[in-house]
Amino acid sequence: MSAALALADDALVLSHRLGEWAGHAPVLEEEVALANIALDLLGQARSLYSLVGDEDELAYLREERAFRNVQLVEQPNGDFAHTFARQLYFSAYQLPLYRALAATDSDLAPLAAKAAKEVEYHLDHARTWTLRLGDGTEESHARMQRACTALWKFTGELFQPVEGLEADPAALEAEWLVDIREVLERATLTLPDGPRLGGWAAGAGRQGLHTEPFGRMLAEMQHLHRSHPGATW
């Protein structure tokens, strides 16, 4: 598996999930914000796919088992708290990863350097919502805590070694934990203490094993392209 493919699949799948909010976000500003983050991720995915092969074939014509994204990004949107817990966990991983890659001379470096600046805004946005919901009303606090806890088991997979990826997973994980601990504490939330890896945790997306909702997401994402091969407008 190529490292570019794994990172491209992460970006594409999360982009699609965020795009599902279009027309459903609680306020117009958030509608626009989620679409903007989705667009950034889509741009990153396209750039990464171009290092691997044909972007349309890779995005639209692969089966579920061929996707190498982590399971975190394929998790359904859930409520707004769920969407932002997922975004917080992912952006806090993606930012130090891209920064590390930007400092290498790998073929991922140019994209990583550029995308890191975009992800700064994603992480900032996710942090803000985590604080607002966590330190908000009783209801918002409960929902944010529930979301952070529910997605916790998907976070260990982020730091599994990926072949060809020039970044130290242990260093990334240490930075991620410091970051997440600090945000959750400020948001009056409790850092979940369940397992993040092993038998009771999730995580084999990089090996092509995905959770049940992913197949349905792919079916919707790929349906148009598969029904009308080569269609243009």
């Binding site: 500003e29 679409a35 903007n36 950034d40 975009e118 805004y121 900032d124 946005h125």
Partner: peptide, 13 residues
Amino acid sequence: LLSRFSSTACKAL
């Protein structure tokens, strides 16, 4: 600041 993201990716509202 109303929103970090606006009509295009490069703008805030």
